[in-house]
C-alpha cells in the first residue's frame, strides 16, 4: 500500500531545504542512489524556484507518495499560466525547465484542481535499475 506524506512549508527559497530533507529521507528508504536523489532535488528546486519567481505564494504544499520503487511528488498550489505552459512543453534546444524535468525525472504531469483553478506539478522518480 502506498504511503503518503504531506508537507506544507512557507513559500520561500529557504524552505526548499526542508523539502529536500524529507524527500531525501524517503528516497533513502527506497534505496535511491545519490544521483537519483540529486536529480530529484534539482527537479524540485527547478519547479519551486520557477513558481516563486512567477507568483506570490504564501505556502507550498508538497505531497509525496511512496509506491514500490517510485516516489511521486506533487507540488502546488500554483496559478502561474507560464509555469503550467512550461511544464507541458516539449524539450527544446535549450536548458529550460521543461528540458530539465524531462531529463531529471521519469514523468512530469500537471494536475488541475477543479475547485479553485489552481494546479500542481507532479513528478515521478523511479529507483534507477543500477541502484542497489
Amino acid at each position: 500500500m502506498a504511503e503518503r506524506i504531506s508537507l506544507e512549508v512557507p513559500a520561500t527559497l529557504s524552505a526548499l531545504s526542508t523539502v529536500r530533507m524529507v524527500l531525501g529521507g524517503l528516497g533513502a528508504r527506497l534505496d535511491f542512489s545519490l544521483e537519483d536523489l540529486d536529480d530529484l532535488f534539482l527537479a524540485m528546486d527547478g519547479i519551486l524556484q520557477a513558481a516563486l519567481e512567477d507568483e506570490e505564494l504564501d505556502d507550498l504544499r508538497v505531497l509525496a507518495i511512496v509506491d514500490g520503487a517510485s516516489l511521486r511528488v506533487s507540488a502546488g498550489a500554483f496559478r502561474s499560466a507560464r509555469l503550467r505552459d512550461q511544464v507541458a512543453l516539449t524539450p527544446g534546444d535549450c536548458i529550460d525547465l521543461c528540458t530539465l524535468l524531462r531529463r531529471l525525472v521519469d514523468d512530469v504531469v500537471v494536475e488541475e484542481e477543479e475547485q479553485d483553478g489552481s494546479f500542481s506539478v507532479v513528478i515521478v522518480k523511479n529507483r534507477s535499475e543500477t541502484a542497489a
Partner: peptide, 18 residues
C-alpha cells in the same frame, strides 16, 4: 544552472529552436 537562472531570469524562458 543557478548562473543560467540568474542570467536569463528563470529557466522557464525558452529559446526558440535554433
Amino acid at each position: 544552472l543557478e548562473k543560467l537562472r540568474e542570467e536569463i531570469g528563470d529557466l522557464d524562458n525558452p529559446l526558440p529552436p535554433r
